[in-house]
Simulated scan of single mutants.
Amino acid sequence: MAYFNNQKEPVKNVETNVWSCVSDDCSGWMRENYSFEKEPACPICQSEMEKEVRIVPEMK
């Protein structure tokens, strides 16, 4: 499909399982399939993380 004025094709958003940091001071999160650990620690603050679902851009 052709887009004019150098506009990119819109990115599709999908519901994705993610790990989200439980700390109120941190907004860290990562896609579930990007972790090798069963229950990862936050890569930013090392706090615990919990599973949740977010709507994020689709990765191809």
Rank of each mutant, 00 (worst) to 15 (best):
Met1Gly: 06
Met1Cys: 05
Met1Trp: 07
Ala2Thr: 12
Ala2Cys: 09
Ala2Arg: 11
Ala2Pro: 07
Ala2Gly: 08
Phe4Thr: 01
Phe4Leu: 03
Phe4Glu: 00
Phe4Asp: 02
Asn5Leu: 05
Asn5Cys: 08
Asn5Val: 05
Asn5Tyr: 06
Asn5Ser: 13
Asn5Met: 04
Asn5Ile: 04
Asn6Ala: 03
Asn6Lys: 10
Asn6Ile: 12
Gln7Val: 08
Gln7Ala: 06
Gln7Lys: 06
Gln7Asp: 04
Lys8Arg: 00
Lys8His: 10
Lys8Met: 10
Lys8Asp: 00
Glu9Ile: 14
Glu9Gln: 05
Pro10His: 05
Pro10Val: 09
Val11Asp: 12
Val11Ala: 09
Val11Ser: 12
Val11Ile: 15
Lys12Ile: 04
Asn13Leu: 15
Asn13Ala: 05
Asn13Gln: 15
Asn13Trp: 15
Val14Pro: 01
Val14Gln: 12
Val14Trp: 02
Glu15Arg: 10
Glu15Trp: 15
Glu15Lys: 12
Thr16Asn: 15
Thr16Glu: 14
Thr16Cys: 12
Thr16Ala: 10
Asn17Pro: 10
Val18Met: 04
Trp19Ile: 13
Trp19Val: 02
Trp19Tyr: 11
Ser20Asp: 13
Ser20Tyr: 14
Cys21Tyr: 01
Cys21Ile: 13
Val22Met: 03
Val22Gln: 08
Ser23Tyr: 11
Asp24Leu: 11
Asp24Asn: 10
Asp25Ala: 03
Cys26Trp: 08
Cys26Thr: 02
Cys26Asn: 08
Cys26Arg: 01
Cys26Tyr: 02
Gly28Asn: 11
Gly28Ser: 12
Trp29Gln: 03
Trp29Tyr: 09
Trp29Met: 04
Met30Ile: 13
Met30Val: 11
Met30Phe: 15
Met30Gln: 12
Arg31Trp: 09
Glu32Gln: 12
Asn33Gly: 07
Asn33Ile: 12
Tyr34Asp: 15
Tyr34Gln: 13
Ser35His: 06
Ser35Trp: 09
Ser35Asn: 06
Phe36Leu: 09
Phe36His: 15
Phe36Arg: 10
Phe36Glu: 09
Glu37His: 14
Glu37Ile: 02
Glu37Gln: 11
Glu39Ser: 07
Glu39Met: 05
Glu39Pro: 11
Glu39Tyr: 03
Pro40Ala: 10
Pro40Arg: 08
Pro40Asp: 00
Pro40Trp: 07
Pro40Glu: 03
Ala41His: 03
Cys42Lys: 00
Cys42Trp: 07
Cys42Met: 11
Cys42Pro: 03
Pro43Tyr: 12
Pro43Ile: 02
Pro43Thr: 14
Ile44Val: 09
Ile44Cys: 10
Ile44Asp: 04
Cys45His: 10
Cys45Thr: 05
Cys45Pro: 00
Cys45Phe: 05
Cys45Ile: 11
Cys45Arg: 08
Gln46Gly: 08
Ser47Ile: 07
Ser47Pro: 03
Glu48Val: 14
Glu48Lys: 13
Met49Ile: 01
Met49Pro: 00
Met49Gln: 01
Glu50Trp: 04
Glu50Tyr: 02
Lys51Ser: 07
Lys51Asp: 06
Lys51Val: 02
Glu52Asn: 06
Val53Asn: 00
Val53Leu: 04
Val53Cys: 01
Arg54Lys: 11
Arg54Phe: 14
Ile55Lys: 09
Ile55Glu: 02
Val56Arg: 11
Val56Lys: 01
Pro57Asp: 04
Pro57Ile: 01
Pro57Ala: 06
Pro57Thr: 07
Glu58Val: 10
Glu58Ala: 00
Glu58Leu: 07
Glu58Thr: 01
Met59Gly: 06
